[in-house]
Amino acid sequence: MPCAAARACPSFLDKSIHPHVLRHSCAMSLLQAGIDTTVIALWLGHAGVRSTDAYVHADMTIKEKALALNTPVTAQPGHYQPTDKALAFLDRL
Results as ranks from 00 to 15, higher is better:
23 R>L: 05
7 R>K: 13
64 E>P: 00
31 L>I: 05
78 G>F: 13
35 I>W: 08
84 D>Y: 02
33 A>S: 12
88 A>L: 11
3 C>W: 08
24 H>I: 10
68 A>L: 12
77 P>E: 09
78 G>T: 11
75 A>N: 13
51 S>D: 10
26 C>L: 14
81 Q>R: 15
3 C>F: 11
72 P>D: 14
62 I>P: 00
92 R>Q: 13
8 A>G: 01
65 K>V: 03
72 P>R: 14
82 P>C: 10
84 D>A: 08
9 C>A: 08
10 P>N: 03
57 H>Y: 13
11 S>R: 12
16 S>V: 08
29 S>D: 14
40 I>H: 00
55 Y>R: 05
86 A>L: 15
67 L>C: 09
12 F>A: 01
31 L>N: 01
81 Q>W: 04
38 T>L: 04
36 D>P: 01
37 T>H: 01
93 L>Y: 06
18 H>S: 05
89 F>Y: 15
29 S>Y: 09
2 P>N: 10
68 A>Y: 03
52 T>P: 00
51 S>E: 14
10 P>M: 02
10 P>S: 02
21 V>M: 14
63 K>Y: 07
4 A>T: 13
67 L>N: 07
33 A>E: 08
7 R>L: 10
84 D>S: 04
75 A>M: 13
37 T>G: 02
13 L>T: 03
11 S>V: 05
10 P>D: 01
26 C>E: 13
29 S>A: 15
75 A>R: 11
27 A>W: 00
12 F>T: 02
52 T>H: 00
62 I>K: 02
50 R>H: 15
14 D>K: 08
15 K>H: 04
47 A>K: 13
14 D>R: 09
33 A>G: 02
35 I>D: 06
46 H>S: 02
22 L>H: 07
60 M>W: 07
48 G>Y: 06
20 H>K: 10
38 T>G: 05
23 R>V: 11
76 Q>A: 10
63 K>V: 07
67 L>A: 15
15 K>V: 05
64 E>G: 01
23 R>Q: 09
22 L>C: 11
13 L>Q: 05
69 L>A: 07
53 D>L: 03
67 L>D: 02
56 V>E: 06
12 F>N: 02
83 T>S: 15
75 A>W: 14
84 D>I: 04
21 V>Y: 11
4 A>D: 08
1 M>L: 12
21 V>F: 12
56 V>T: 12
39 V>I: 15
15 K>W: 08
68 A>D: 12
25 S>I: 09
20 H>C: 04
87 L>M: 14
36 D>N: 08
55 Y>H: 10
81 Q>S: 11
77 P>R: 11
80 Y>E: 03
46 H>M: 05
25 S>A: 15
30 L>K: 00
37 T>I: 09
88 A>H: 09
12 F>C: 06
33 A>P: 01
84 D>K: 10
11 S>Y: 13
30 L>G: 01
83 T>H: 09
36 D>Q: 12
70 N>I: 11
86 A>D: 09
73 V>A: 13
7 R>A: 02
14 D>F: 05
52 T>S: 04
71 T>L: 14
18 H>N: 04
44 L>P: 00
59 D>H: 03
25 S>T: 15
16 S>F: 08
33 A>D: 11
73 V>F: 10
65 K>Q: 14
45 G>E: 06
38 T>N: 08
81 Q>F: 06
79 H>K: 15
75 A>H: 13
92 R>A: 13
54 A>F: 06
17 I>H: 01
54 A>C: 14
27 A>S: 04
71 T>Q: 12
8 A>C: 07
77 P>D: 05
18 H>T: 10
